[in-house]
Simulated scan of single mutants.
Amino acid sequence: MFNNTPLSTTSVATLSYLQQNVKKAWSQWIQDQRQAKLIFLGAGFLVSVPVFIQAPLVRVLPALSLILTLFWVSLGVILLKRPKTEIWGDLILGFSWSWLAGSIYWGWYRAEPLIHLPIEAIGLPFALWGLRKGYLKIGNLFYLGSLLGTAVTDIYFYLTGLIGHWQQVMQVEPALVTPILQSAIAIVQTPWGVSWAVVLANFLLAIGLWSLQQKQAYWWGFSGAVLSTILVDSLFWVATSLI
C-alpha cells in the first residue's frame, strides 16, 4: 500500500532547495562551457592577428608596432577591471607578450633565425611566475600555448633545413622571394619534410585536444593557441604553394 500522507513542510522545503541547487549548478555549467568556447575562439583569433595585421605593419613601421604594445596592455588592464570583460582583459594581457616579442624580432632581427625563439620567449619568466602565483591564468596559458606553437614551427625549420631559406627571404627584395619560396616548398614536399610535418602536427594536436578535455576554462585558451598554430602554418604553406 502506498502512503498517501502529504509531505511535511520540511520535506517540501528540502526538495525545493535541492531543485534550486541542481538548477543553479546546471546553469553554471552551461555558462562555464560557453565561456570556455569563447576563450578558445578568442585565442585562435589572437594567434591569427600577428599574421594578418602585425606582419605587414612591422616591416614598414616597426616602431609603431612596438608602441602598440602599450595599447594592448592598457586595453587588457581596462577590461580586466570590469567583471563582465575580465576574461578578455586576462587574455589580451597574455597576447601583449606575443605582440611585444613579434614587434622586436620581426621589426629588427627577422633575418636572424637563431635568436627568434629567445626573443619570442621574452615573457616566459613572467608567465611562469604568474601561473605559480595563480595570476592571469587565461593570458599566461595563451602565451605559453602560442610560444609552444612557435617553438615547434622553428624546430620544423631546423629539422628540414629551411633556416637558410628563412634568411634569404628576409634579406632579398620582394620581387626575388618567389624562387626561394618555391625551393622551400620542394623541401617540404619530400618524404623527410612531410614526415616531420605529420609528427609535429600530431604532437600539437594531441596537446591541444588534451587541453580541451580539462574542466578549467583557461586551458581552452591554451588549446586555442596551440591548435590555431596548426591552422595558420597550414594556410601559410598552402598560400606559398600557390605562388
Score class of each variant (00 low, 15 high):
V177D: 11
G89E: 00
T14M: 14
I243N: 10
S234T: 12
Q214A: 09
G139S: 08
L38K: 11
W196T: 00
K23L: 13
A63F: 09
A13P: 03
T69L: 08
T85Y: 00
L176R: 08
G134D: 15
I243C: 12
A239S: 07
Q33G: 13
A127R: 00
V198P: 05
A184H: 00
I155Q: 03
L7M: 14
L68W: 03
A121H: 03
P50H: 03
G145P: 02
G76C: 07
P118Q: 08
A197P: 04
V198Q: 14
P83W: 03
I104E: 15
P179W: 00
Q171K: 02
A184C: 05
L231M: 11
N140G: 02
A206K: 14
L93A: 12
K215W: 13
F126H: 01
R132T: 13
Y17N: 08
Q216Y: 08
L41K: 11
Y156C: 00
T229E: 09
E112C: 13
F126L: 09
Y17K: 06
G42D: 13
A197S: 09
R59A: 12
Y218G: 04
L147S: 00
T160W: 02
T69S: 11
L66N: 02
F52W: 13
F203Q: 06
S11M: 06
L147W: 04
S11F: 04
T229K: 12
I207H: 09
E86A: 09
W166T: 12
A151H: 14
L131I: 07
I67E: 08
L124C: 08
Y158G: 08
P50T: 01
G139Q: 05
W72T: 13
G134F: 06
P174G: 03
K23G: 15
V60E: 02
P113G: 06
S74W: 15
F45T: 09
W219H: 10
